[in-house]
Design a protein around this nucleic acid. Structure first.
Lengths: 362, 362
DNA sequence: GGATGAGATGAATGCGATTTCAGCACGGTT
DNA sequence: AACCGTGCTGAAATCGCATTCATCTCATCC
């Protein structure tokens, strides 16, 4: 029925050992014989049994990706990038949706971690403590874990340059004459939100007479933006920076519904540049994150730190040299992390500040 | 280092055979002993080695899903549903993105099919011929393949009720007084597009004095809709039905840019009800497809026809009894297929026809 | 009370590959 | 001529688990 290595060996007139070597360690076999075995294997349609190989080598040829929500366009894009890169390196990808649940997240890492060569955990919702616990209790020692969109001592990571994105956005708004800028934040525990808050604070200090108003924390969804929209209208700001695009789209929608014109009355800036950002009108000015590259970088770094052998080593060489991705080799003992650069894309949702309301304080 | 079954057996004072049975065939072991072994296994933190188990049973505990584009919100939603259901039944899910490429699609099915208990192939772009070839050349005989969004003799499938969706849309437009209706179609080879065209033809025959104008084939993307928008404006129709939401959104955007008011001048209806449909204004009237349910149904049917043993059999019983999902048991020998019902959701992009332009012919 | 059978257990086998280890042949060196 | 290293090859030992088969113990029935 199914062709096994013994069949190939028999048909080629060699021992199973030699057949095995001819196919997976060609250097150890005399050229003529090697060719012959490979030929026979091809003719017979031999396909090595992955389970048998895994059993003895301990390697599965699989990676796994855990995200909070597959339907979120941000994570979908990351997943696409990770999948593509994994495949290019010869890995299959197990994908799991943690449904925004920290407990499920840990459980999935535990379950799937047992059957893969490495785990990519994207935007983990779990606490630092739980994150720590993963490497002790949940995961085998030889299964490397990499974080995306979260920095945590002990794990290698790929993160977005949140501070720079926020700075670019603030500078843009400042250049347009905005002085009172609102920030519609993400969920309370969000790591990237705290990063962006810090960046925002830092950026505003560097600019004259910019006043940042914290509008609070919102679920990073369209609905959250609708709620935030009212606060924007009431706050007297001339521009608002949202934690992410979905939030910004909600704000946009709510402002329009209330008759507040964008960008004439209020400018709106998002973050992430999801596809929907260009589908609305006015099109959303936002910070674009090269998510496909982020996904690639994640796989490359994971494979590198995990010493995970790949089928196609060659492709790996140029992996981390791509532009825009800064590399922090990490102090001795500290796992490395990659910083993904971002870029502001200006669309129609931002414009010059209305002179009447923009002057504050001075 | 790692706890094996032998360790558990030794610690529990039984033979490996008994330990194995106590854990995976509890009925065969005396209650007291069974409890004891399970207890010991728990204490030692025993985790069975999947590779070893797979090697002997031939089952992997994995399913795989192949979609044309993970970033497309339609497929993302399907993936989410499939993943959730697979996990509920104790399977892990391998996900692959075929990048809209028929060849890659076949290759992925071949590669991944070798290491899973079943394959879900969603909206395959390959031809019927290539589809046939899968079961002969590419896939092992004992790996069941299920199609989503495509009907093809030989494979079980889960499909959307395209004809009914189109009919509901047409009736809605007819009730609003529209008589000249345009159809902006999907790509030429698209199976679902031809389904919808048939449905459209059939539906319009049933209604008095409705004239359907074929606006042609477009890539089912926002950009395709922009192109279609101009044709809509030039065609003189008062309403347009788009092959999917992205296309509809493009049309919406283009019409707005040209000063054509929606829905006052032209009504627009989409298909799929992707999240972005509610984010634009006017919000898009569209045919909503319960994609999560579709994903669930796909896994359930795959497991059923494939005789794939699941960890949690109980959950399976109620699987296909969910409302809205018609079941075609299939004539003897024909694989079964499930029809997923759809529903029109009326939002702001459709309105009563303008009296001046709606009367045609009579 | 002996035959019968159900129930529980353990020894042994094998799934299909990789990998040690020993053996063999051969060419070159002392 | 004896010795040694090098290059290939094959026999056999795993890897961790499920499963067959034989064994053994009792309760049951006639």
């Amino acid at each position: 029925m199914v062709v096994t290595l013994r069949d190939v060996a028999r048909a080629a007139g060699v021992s199973p050992a030699t057949a095995s070597r001819a196919l997976s360690a060609p250097d150890l076999v005399a050229p003529a014989r090697r060719e012959h075995v490979q030929q026979v294997a091809r003719e017979l349609g031999y396909r090595p049994n992955r389970a048998a190989r895994e059993l003895i080598t301990g390697r599965t040829g699989n990676l796994c990706l855990v995200v909070p929500d597959l339907e979120n366009p941000f994570f979908a894009a990351v997943a696409k990038g990770v999948q593509a890169r994994a495949r290019a390196l010869g890995f299959a990808l197990l994908v799991a949706d943690a449904e925004e649940d920290p407990r499920l997240e840990a459980e999935l890492v535990g379950h799937l971690g047992a059957q893969v060569d490495g785990v990519v955990l994207c935007s983990p919702r779990m606490s630092d403590l739980e994150l720590d616990r993963l490497s002790h209790d949940v995961l085998d020692d030889d299964v490397p874990l990499l974080l995306v969109n979260r920095l945590h001592g002990g794990y290698p990571s790929v993160v977005i340059d949140n501070a720079d994105g926020v700075r670019q956005a603030v500078r843009h708004l400042h250049a347009l004459g905005h002085r009172r800028i609102g920030y519609a934040g993400g969920p309370v525990g969000s790591w990237s939100d705290s990063q962006r808050r810090h960046g925002l604070e830092h950026a505003s200090h560097g600019l004259r007479s910019v006043e940042v108003t914290d509008l609070g924390h919102f679920p990073p969804l369209f609905g959250g933006g609708v709620a935030a929209g009212d606060l924007v209208a009431a706050s007297g700001v001339t521009a608002v920076l949202a934690h992410n695009d979905l939030l910004a789209l909600g704000i946009l929608s709510r402002l329009r519904a209330r008759g507040v014109r964008v960008p004439e009355d209020v400018s709106v800036v998002g973050y992430d540049d999801i596809p929907a950002a260009t589908l609305v009108s006015p099109a959303l000015t936002t910070v674009t994150v090269p998510l496909a590259r982020l996904g690639r970088a994640a796989v490359d770094l994971l494979v590198e730190v995990g010493q995970v052998p790949t089928a196609t080593e060659s492709a790996l060489a140029t992996a981390l040299s791509s532009a825009g991705a800064g590399r922090d080799p990490g102090a001795a003992g500290t796992p490395p992390s990659v910083l993904i650069g971002v870029e502001l894309v200006v669309r129609a949702s931002t414009g010059v500040a209305n002179a009447q309301t923009s002057e504050v304080g001075e």
